[in-house]
């Protein structure tokens, strides 16, 4: 045995709490090892004094303060044990599953059916209005906008003039809270109506922003924003025109559509300009949800904006 092994047994050796054979080995080692002998001498003095350091008692009122911190058994936390305990575990589990299923059913299927029904009843009524003071330019290269049949975005809108656009807009008479919540919509340019396209709103797939949507390979993504309840108000109209001007200044195109009494502004903008656009529109309000990532290789992004007038 080496010194460190011997020293790990020294306390037991002192306490005489050791096998006689090991005791003999340690005694033999101590007779020849000065370091371990000194260690033993130290322990002989140190251990009794360490034990004498004394015990400190808890301060008065310790139990009282502890009792105040303990949860009161007379006020059980919800869900009450009394309410749940009489039920056997399988019954509790079954009831839990039923409640979960009901909640999921309520928030998913009926909602989707209701929305589809509404969309079916609402014809696609998208239309594009040119900014009032914008000189209408004819372009030889016309392109069908992929958003919907009824939305024809002309190439001339891609040449913006923010000044003329802004002068045509009404002045913002009061503060407008712009609630932006972007989410991607899988877009198909196979001739589906705008309303039907918008019904394909899905959860954002931020990492999958390569422009390869599920329904149309290589087709641009469409982002939808919340609809406005007071689309006809002056304030919303002013903001619409302001944003339209920003889009035009960045080389984008705009069109307006109405959906369920909400006015939606459909924007087609180059991917490279997207971040700049988002930065520009933040001055109209706080953007509460994170922006989707935009792949710079993507040719363009289409966005729908909706506004909600603040108080």
């Amino acid at each position: 045995m080496n010194c460190s092994q011997i020293r790990s047994h020294l306390k037991d050796y002192l306490d005489d709490n050791i096998h006689p054979r090991l005791q003999a080995i340690i005694t033999g080692h101590l007779s020849s090892c000065d370091g371990c002998s000194k260690e033993l001498a130290f322990l002989k003095t140190y251990l009794p004094q360490a034990k004498d350091i004394g015990k400190i008692v808890a301060p008065p009122g310790f139990e009282l303060r502890l009792r105040q911190k303990l949860p009161n058994p007379s006020q059980p936390s919800f869900p009450s044990r009394k309410w749940f305990l009489p039920l056997p575990a399988p019954v509790t589990a079954f009831v839990g599953i039923l409640i979960t299923a009901a909640v999921i059913f309520y928030f998913s299927k009926p909602y989707k059916l209701m929305e589809k029904e509404q969309l079916r009843k609402t014809p696609a009524s998208a239309s594009y209005k040119l900014p009032e003071n914008r000189p209408a330019k004819k372009s030889s290269q016309k392109k069908q906008a992929p958003v919907a049949d009824s939305i024809a975005l002309s190439q001339e809108q891609a040449k913006p003039d923010i000044t003329s656009s802004r002068t045509g807009a009404k002045e913002i008479s009061r503060t407008v809270a712009l609630t932006l919540s972007l989410w991607p919509v899988n877009y198909s340019d196979s001739g589906e109506s705008a309303a039907k396209t918008r019904s394909q709103i899905t959860v954002p797939e931020l990492s999958n922003s390569t422009g390869q949507s599920a329904t149309g390979e290589g087709s641009p993504r469409v982002f939808a924003l919340e609809k406005s309840e007071k689309a006809e108000s002056d304030a919303v109209y002013s903001v619409t025109n302001e944003i339209r001007g920003i889009v035009n200044s960045l080389g984008g195109k705009t069109a307006t559509v109405k959906k369920n009494s909400a006015q939606l502004l459909i924007i087609k903008i180059q991917a490279q300009q997207y971040q700049q656009f988002v930065h520009a529109i933040t001055k109209y309000g706080e953007v509460k949800k994170p922006y989707p990532k935009v792949n710079q290789n993507e040719q363009s992004i289409e966005i729908e904006l909706g506004f909600q007038e603040g108080n």
Binding site: S4, R7, S8, H9, L10, K11, E39, L43, Y46
Partner: peptide
Amino acid sequence: VKSKLARARHHLR
């Protein structure tokens, strides 16, 4: 435990 205690006591010493 034994070896660590022995080392700690050595440091104390």
